[in-house]
Amino acid sequence: MTTPDQPGQPAAEERLLRERLQRAGYLADADLATTVWLASALQRPLLLEGDAGVGKTALATALAQSQGATLVRLQCFEGLDLAQAAYEWNYGRQLMAIRMSESDKDAAGRVRESDVFSRDYLLERPLLRAISQSGPCVLLIDEIDRADEAFEAFLLEVLAEYQITVPEIGTIRATHIPQVILTSNGTRELSDALRRRCLYHYLDYPTLAREIAIVKAALPEVDTRLVEDAVQFVQRLRREDLAKIPGIAETLDWVNALFQMRHHSLPEDMSAVLGTLGCLLKTREDRFVMGPDRLRQLVEGRRTVGVAENANEQAKATT
C-alpha cells in the first residue's frame, strides 16, 4: 500500500509510515507503527482496543489521510444489520424501472430480470463500498462491540476473504484489499473467531512526553509552558478516582480553552481553572470531587494515594 523508498527494508517502511502519520497529525509510538505496518504487509485487519479517547478512531483517519486513501467508516450500533452495513436493493428504483418499461409500448423497452438486479440497482453500504473501491482504502469499523453477535459472524467472511456474496449477482471480490481497522471499547466480549482473524493492539493513555508532543503538534501556537503544565495536570488527574477518565481529545479541548482565554501558563487562580474544567470532567460526580482545594493539590503535584495505587506500590516494593 505504501510506496517505500527502499523496498524490502521494513524498518525504512515503518519509519516512513510513522512520518506520514505524523504529518497527518497522529503521533504513533514505535510498537503501534510496527503493528500497523504489519497489518498492511500481512493484509490482516487490525483490532484496536482501549479506553474512550485514546485515539483509536483518530488512527484510522490519520492513516487514510497519510496514504491518500479513501476512508470508509462503518459505525456499529445495536441492531445493525446487513442492509445497513453491506448492501441493499434499491426497490424503489427497481419498481420504477419496471413500471416505466410497462408503460413503454415498444417491445425493445421490456425490462428483464437481470437488468433490474444489476449493480445499478444496488445501494452500496460501507462494507460493499470499501470492497469495491478502485484505489487504496481504509475501512474503519468503529465500536464493533456495540453490534450484535450475529453481525460479527457476518463480518468474518468480509474480513477473511475480502468478499461479499450477493445472491442475485454473485460474489464481489475486492480489487484493492482495503486496510481494515476495528475498534472496540470492551463493553462486550468479542468472539474468539473474530479476534483470531485480526492483529491486536491495546492503546493505552499516552505517556507524559508523548502527550506533550501530541498537544504541541495539534496546537502549535500555544505556549510551551502552558502545554507542559496542563498535560502534567491531566496525567495526574487520570490517576484520580474518576468515573470518566479524560482522554487525549479532552486534553486538547482544555489546552485550547486555556489558550483562548489568553493564559500563558496554568493560572494561579483556581477558580479560573475550575471554570474550564468542564472540558476534562464530564460527569457531575467528577466535578463534585474536584473542589478548589483538591485541584490546587493536583496542580502542585501533591496527591493523596488511592487504595489501588497503594496496593500497586506495595506490590512493587515487595517484589
Partner: peptide, 24 residues
Amino acid sequence: LLGPLHERPLQAAWRAIACHSHRE
C-alpha cells in the same frame, strides 16, 4: 518480513499476532 532482526519491532509484531485481548 522484518528481515535482519532488531528485537523491538519483532516483539511488537508478535505481540499483535499472539494477543487477542487486553488480558493477554
